[in-house]
């Protein structure tokens, strides 16, 4: 097993880079990170639109959210990969295809987290902010969202963990993320399937579990800071 790691660690980490496109674990991490960074503002906007007092905003976002939530990620991945180039005339690379799909799904799920958080907040918070003369956007930004995002932090981390795992579906369109690379290695060495996939599983576990722990510590620190000040 050590020999296996010794031979293939660089391939596992970055794929064929710099000779070929960037791949491996680095691609997985970069894709997940980029997806979340891009999906955060989108999800925030969608979530706010979803609980908007204006029907014109609320209804279309409701349709988008319900639609995306009812479709498997894999199916949307196929659509984007095979149909989008036909529409735009430009071939979409595997990595950008994956990114588009991840951003779409992330923003929809984040929107639901934001919307649920806003709905869960006592009505009095909005009312007291408005009664002071703050506008709707001000009440949202200064009073509602800071509370919503804090209480939604565990769900947001959950979503990031899901995103990391979802990148493995890129395998199906030949995206050279870490699962794809592991399969390549398995084909090359042939006789060490258990070891190869054990290392892969361990990699995902460390990444996702580490992230959950980090979020937990962050959450506790926020709590402690609120307590310490009082």
């Amino acid at each position: 097993m050590l020999e296996l790691i010794d031979t293939y660690w660089l391939y596992f980490l970055v794929g064929q880079y710099p000779a070929g496109p960037l791949g491996g674990l680095v691609l997985t991490v970069l894709l997940s990170g980029a997806a979340l960074v891009l999906a955060m503002p989108l999800g925030l906007m969608l979530g706010i639109a979803r609980v908007s007092p204006y029907r014109l905003l609320r209804w279309p976002t409701g349709v988008v959210v319900q639609l995306v939530r009812a479709l498997p990620l894999l199916l949307v991945l196929f659509w984007v990969y095979f149909f989008l180039p036909a529409l735009t005339g430009v071939k979409t690379s595997q990595a950008s295809t994956m990114l588009i799909v991840l951003v779409l799904f992330d923003s929809v799920y984040l929107a639901e987290i934001v919307a649920a958080g806003i709905r869960a907040l006592p009505k009095g918070q909005f009312e007291s902010a408005r009664s002071l003369g703050l506008s709707y956007p001000q009440a949202l930004r200064l009073v509602v969202l800071p509370q919503t995002l804090r209480s939604g932090l565990p769900s947001i981390v959950n979503q990031l963990v899901s995103t990391i795992k979802a990148t493995s579906l890129g395998y199906i369109i030949g995206l050279s993320e870490v699962s794809f690379i592991a399969t390549q290695i398995n084909t090359l060495v042939f006789t060490h399937a258990v070891e190869v996939y054990l290392v892969l599983a361990l990699t995902y576990f460390i990444l996702c579990f580490g992230l959950s722990r980090l979020a937990f510590l962050l959450e506790r620190r926020l709590q402690r800071r609120a307590m310490a000040a009082s």
């Binding site: 006592p122 009095g124 918070q125 009312e127 007291s128 902010a129 408005r130 009664s131 002071l132 003369g133 703050l134 506008s135 009073v143 800071p146 509370q147 804090r150 609120a226 000040a229």
Partner: peptide, 22 residues
């Protein structure tokens, strides 16, 4: 309406302080 409300103090039964602020 914001200008109107800024000129009228309102105190609620349930306080409704903002819990994330001192």
């Amino acid at each position: 309406v914001n200008l109107l409300r800024a000129g009228i103090g309102f105190v609620f039964q349930s306080f409704n302080l903002f819990p994330h602020l001192t």
